[in-house]
Amino acid sequence: MSRHDNNRYRDRSPVTLWAPDAGHPDAIGLRSIGFWLYMMSDAMIFAALFAAHGVYTHAYGTSDITASQVIDPVEGLLPTLFLFTSVLMYGLASVALKNDDRAGVVRWMGASLGLGVLFLLVEVWEFAGLVGEGAVPQASAFLSDFWTIVWVHGGHVFVGLIWMAAMLIQISREGFTETVVGRFINLRIFWFFQAVIWVCVYTYVYLMGAS
């Protein structure tokens, strides 16, 4: 017999068989755990890319372009700064949310959006330079890998920016309903995560590539 079946309820009637009304469900918490789970899955996207990167670090084939020629860690600090500041701005937006300050949320989120755009622009500029040097993804396995990792991350940032723009419109139109707040929290998870992933990309691709 199962351990829990100790007839505890036999003498105490009536047993509660059906729960009374559950009250207000935690819709925000429910959404956030789901989105967090999705982020775990997304993290494994990068795990696969890093696994491949570990093998392609010196896979130049017949190309004579080496990692240290195309990767400049100091240059990489600029997008790092933009992205981390953008994340900070989103953080401040969520402090404004806590204080029920709609104008503040819109302002900080706008700043976050702008810095995200700057991040992408710097990346585009950096890679446009690579094309000029002939360091295109078709040149060698290493370059295929380098471009792919950086741009899978960049693609995430791009999606985040579209989401943020839509979010800005929604907040200014609808205010802080439960749905909007839940979505705001999910975007916060997504956006903060891009910073964590960028730490890995910067260290593992930029710094290790240059060392």
């Binding site: 491949a52 392609y56 896979a59 060698s140 396995a141």
Partner: peptide, 19 residues
Amino acid sequence: GTHFFTADGGGNFMMYTNL
């Protein structure tokens, strides 16, 4: 036309099998 799993260009087709 990247070179992840090709035989040339530094590609490594065992990487595909691994992933």
